[in-house]
Structures are given as C-alpha cells and as structure tokens.
C-alpha cells in the first residue's frame, strides 16, 4: 500500500508555469489524471516518477521524496508517453533486461509473467522495432510491471491501442488495482477515464481544478444548471406541464428535441413522471445531457 503525496507543488520552465501549487494524494486504486493538452499532466507524472524536480513543494512516495531517489524505482513502475523503445531488442529481451536491472530474483520467469499479463506472448520474440503502436505500448507496460511494483504510473497508456487491446488493458489495470496497488494514469480521452477510474484529478492550465469522484464533482457544480433531454410521445404537452414546475428553470423545444434545465437535480427527477402523466404522454427517454465526464470537464476547463 503506497501513497503518492504532492504538497504545494509548482514547476515552471523558464517563465512558463507548467504546474501551479498543486496538492493531492493518490492512494491505492485507480486514479485518472485528466486535462487538455498542455495542462501539465506529463509534468506532474514526471515529477511523481522522479524525473523532474519540483521548483516548489514536495513530491513524496510515502515519506521519501521521489526526486533523486533511484531506490524508489523498486516500487514504482513507469510507462512513459513517448513511443521510443529499444527497437533492436525483442520484447522478451527488453522485459528480461529490465527485470535484471531491477535485480528480480528470477528474471526470465518474471519477464514471461509480465509478457503474458499484457497478452503479448505470441509476438514476444520479434523485435520491438517492427511492432504496431499498440503492441509497443503493451511492451512498455510489460517492462513497467516486471518487478511487481506497488505504484504504477502510466502516461497516456491507451494511445494507439485498438478497442480490444484497450479493454484488455483496462481489465488488467482494474485487476491490479483490486490487488491494492496504486495506479495513476493520464488521458485526455474522457471515455477512458470515465470507464476506468474511481477517482479523477482534473488539471487545467497547471492547476488542480477538481479531485474526486466525477459524479460527485458534477453535483458540486451548483452554479450551473443540470440539463436533460426528454423524448416522449407528446413533447409539446409535456413541455407545458413541466413549465409549471417551479424548480425547472427553462424548457426548450427546438427542432423536435425537448430540453429542460434545472438547478435541483432531485426535483426534476421527481417532477418528470407526474408531468408526463398529466400530459398523457409516455416517457421514452430521459437523458442528462451533461452528466458525462465530458461536460464536467468542459465546465471546469471553461471556468
């Protein structure tokens, strides 16, 4: 059980501030790091993995600072974003050499295990140089897993993977999280984060914009009304009925799509069914238009 702990961390390059006074903990389980390109995700991950020194604040794994403590790599596995690998090695040689660099007791067995975990056994004896993007990505993950780390840091791990590989990798990460490991991955693809993580950290322009369960984050954003689209057998009648409900702030019927906005999440869910009954319409669909991580995210980015 390990915890990555950032306290008041800032990092700048010249006069560009990449990370600005960020404080958070990452404990066991899967955490997604979310942010638009250039938000400082990679800088944060590299500081956590000990490849960058924070200009201010501290980055620790449990009690040890990650900067200039190569010993910590016994418990950290890191998957960089850059695609570069030793193209002249086979995946097995690469993972095996990594195991030896980690002084793993039985490097050959550890390599085979790690390669099997990423489902690359069939191609393991081919040079990585000839791999597709997704295969390279998995070879990198295998190398990061070979020493059985308690902390796994992955920078854009799903880049270049096809949907099947993506599902497989998500499964793998979930399994590892269930074993009590601390897993942190970055992404700008919201769907991935939404499907995988219990917890998100949202960074925007170098600052931590939100942290926690994203549905809960959404609910905290009370200054912005929730909006829903509704499909029913009689949208117009339903709209009229909904309009008389005081908690509903706006009803819009535009191009055959009925959209309602409310500041009170619960009130709307309670009001819809009676309104439909009064309008003698059957509800076909009630869908929050912005409950997705996407809308949470775009809200935070815009604020």
């Amino acid at each position: 059980m390990s915890t990555l702990r950032l306290e008041a961390v800032s990092r700048w390059y010249g006069n560009v501030v990449a990370v600005n006074d960020v404080t958070f903990d990452v404990g066991p389980g899967i955490t997604g790091l979310l942010g638009p390109n250039g938000a400082g995700k990679t800088t944060l991950l590299h500081m956590m993995a000990g490849f960058l020194a924070p200009n201010a604040g501290t980055v620790r794994l449990d009690e040890t600072p990650t900067w200039r403590h190569p010993d910590l790599y016994r418990s950290i596995g890191f998957v960089p974003e850059r695609e570069a690998v030793y193209g002249f090695l086979t995946c097995r040689q690469f993972v095996h050499a990594t195991a030896r660099l980690h002084d793993v007791a039985d490097p050959a067995a550890a390599a085979s295990r790690a390669i099997a975990m990423v489902d690359l056994a069939d191609a393991a004896d081919r040079a990585i140089g000839g791999y597709s993007k997704g295969m390279r990505q998995r070879a990198k993950v295998a190398a990061a897993l070979v020493h059985d780390p308690t902390v796994l840091i992955l920078d854009e791990p799903f880049n270049g993977m096809d949907p099947r590989q993506r599902l497989h990798m998500m499964d793998l990460l979930r399994r590892m999280a269930a074993e009590g490991r601390t897993i942190l991955f970055s992404s700008h693809i919201l769907e991935e984060v939404e499907r995988l993580s219990d917890r998100v950290l949202v960074v925007v322009a170098g600052r931590l914009a939100a942290a926690g369960d994203f549905r809960r984050i959404r609910r905290l954003m009370t200054d912005r009304p929730h909006s829903f689209t509704i499909r029913s057998t009689d949208d117009r009648a339903l709209a009229r009925e909904l309009l008389v409900t005081p908690e509903i702030e706006a009803v819009e019927l535009h191009d055959g799509v009925l959209t309602v906005r409310t500041g009170d999440y619960g009130a709307l869910t309670r009001a819809v069914a009676p309104a439909a009954q009064r309008a003698r319409a059957s509800l076909l669909e009630l869908r929050p238009t912005d409950e997705s991580l996407e809308s949470v995210f775009s809200y935070l980015v815009r604020r």
Partner: peptide, 15 residues
C-alpha cells in the same frame, strides 16, 4: 534525444 534513456533511469540502478 530519443527518450529511451527513461528505461535505464527508471530503475533502482545508481546513476
């Protein structure tokens, strides 16, 4: 330059 150095540095090996 290539970025492969990370596979040597992210190891518990003295620099």
């Amino acid at each position: 330059e290539d970025g492969t150095i990370v596979y040597l540095l992210a190891r518990p090996v003295p620099r």
